[in-house]
Design a protein around this nucleic acid. Structure first.
Lengths: 296, 296
DNA sequence: CTGAAAGCGCTTACAG
DNA sequence: CTGAAAGCGCTTACAG
């Protein structure tokens, strides 16, 4: 019978059984390879569970996120994995609660009482600062960009804490352009203050790639007379020269974690909320150099 | 009423009206940033049409593709945009035809009689060869990798045609590893033949990034004593040093094209099949050098 | 334990 | 032109 061209009608099944075997995934960005990897992890786990992912892009805009969320509900998704758009109010989650829609937050969080899969960004920053300190650096700047959300604030906080606890100046934070192509041209911002830094930690590897190029253009030699640490440890880190030392955040794994969290939630809607926060790992390659004692 | 928490039940509507407002998208890979951009273009057009995308990853495996296709049908998608997994038989499309499932091919094609949105890969290769020839190069190798499909063969064919028509040796084709991290270590393959090449054209920018690093490791200076052309023109091309000269393939636009093709097909199932083949564009940056006449 | 009937929430064709 | 009824393809609770 199945051989004769019969296809199960999931829509009819859904109507009756109130389950659609469908999971909504909302990301703020699809162009960034980081989210592509995240999505890859989510898709593989959801697929293995016999379900299907409905994808949407919020563009990091709360209004679009509202629209997209409504559409997901119209399609009767069993649950949603979402990376909250910057500026999402905590009240948003109360609505979701009223709707009785299982939800997990991924990468960013706006509530402690809703499942969350993410990364220990603060600890990751500490690893970067500690490593540079071990090489003798103390004038370290943090280069950031983009919208402000929990993952942003955790990184800032981690950087500041680590700097303060070592007695270094925690206020050396610069904002570089969000547009990738304009990052190299902003490298001069590193040297705008009177006390010249010897190292930079980057908010992500996109910035690291850009500043690495920008520093090269300024005649500096990364890994020799200037040090640079990336964040995310993307595939390219191993393929650039000098090889990029970077703090890995394993987006595929985070995606998998978030999908498993949702699956568990669907199996037991009453279980207490959980937070799965992955530890980062520092991948030391070639972009940092020791500072001679005399240079201090 | 809608204010009072009512949500339209798309599943019930679908059951009755035989339309799900749902489009299936099947890609062979999600980790590759190229497909992420493609997806971004598809999602934006489908979303603007009030529909939703159901995403699946075939892993470039025909068996998985079959499974995924069945699941899409179970979910009653109105149509499918798919990048055929390497090795997909043309008969596959006959099945789809029996199922009465509107379909468009993207990036790769296995049939002339089914809508297709892609890139003129052969012409892109010709642009690369012509440009290098204009700089005096004649010993040019083509570095490829990955599974074999229409987009692969068109690039090979374009390279060979362009080389032959100029009287250059068209057989200088090397296969480098598919795994990004192993590409730099394979740069020596460029010099395994007795007649040393002066330039390399890469199948995609992933290879270009890798070989650029590998050539650097071998002590060569890209853009000075060796020339390199990429393919795809990813964002990183502008952010590496030397800046990468690359043939752009605009994945977001191709995604948009494929989505529009499907929308048109849904509006008129009987319209004749169309092929939307985008022209490439050579972005000249810094990775190629002139060859002195004496060097010939 | 098996099988026929009711009903999920829409849309559409049909009667009034 | 309006409104009540039938029916899409399943699942589930219920009768036999």
């Amino acid at each position: 019978m199945r051989e004769l061209g019969y296809v199960y009608n999931m829509g009819a099944a859904r109507l009756r059984a109130e389950r659609s075997h469908t999971v909504g995934v909302i990301v703020p960005n699809l162009t960034n390879p980081f989210f592509a990897e995240l999505l890859s992890g989510i898709e593989s786990v959801i697929d293995a569970a016999g379900m299907v992912v409905i994808l949407a892009n919020s563009g990091d805009l709360v209004e679009r996120q509202d629209m997209v969320m409504r559409r997901m509900r119209e399609h009767g998704v069993d649950g949603v994995i979402f990376c909250p758009a910057a500026g999402t109010e905590p009240e948003f989650l109360e609505h979701v609660d009223e709707w009785n829609l299982p939800l997990v937050q991924v990468l960013r969080h706006i509530s402690e009482t809703v499942d969350y899969a993410g990364v220990d960004y603060a600890a990751g920053m500490r690893q970067a600062v500690d490593y540079l300190a071990s090489l003798g650096h103390r004038k370290i700047v943090f280069a950031v960009h983009g919208p402000i959300h929990s993952a942003y604030l955790e990184r800032i906080e981690g950087f500041r804490d680590a700097m303060v606890s070592r007695g270094f100046d925690p206020d050396r934070i610069i904002r570089v352009p969000y547009q990738t192509a304009r990052i190299p041209g902003s490298a001069h911002l590193l040297f705008d203050s009177p006390e010249k830094p010897t190292a930079v930690i980057c908010f992500n590897d996109v910035i690291a790639l850009g500043l690495s190029a920008g520093l090269h253009d300024l005649g500096l030699k990364v890994g020799e007379n200037f040090s640079l640490v990336g964040f995310d440890d993307v595939t390219e880190a191993d393929v650039m020269r000098p090889r990029l030392t970077s703090v890995s955040t394993a987006p595929v794994t985070i995606g998998e974690n978030s999908a498993r969290l949702l699956l568990d939630r669907l199996a037991d809607p009453l279980r207490p909320p959980r937070r799965v926060v992955k530890e980062t790992q520092l991948h030391i390659r070639q972009s940092c150099a020791k500072i001679a004692i005399t240079a201090l």
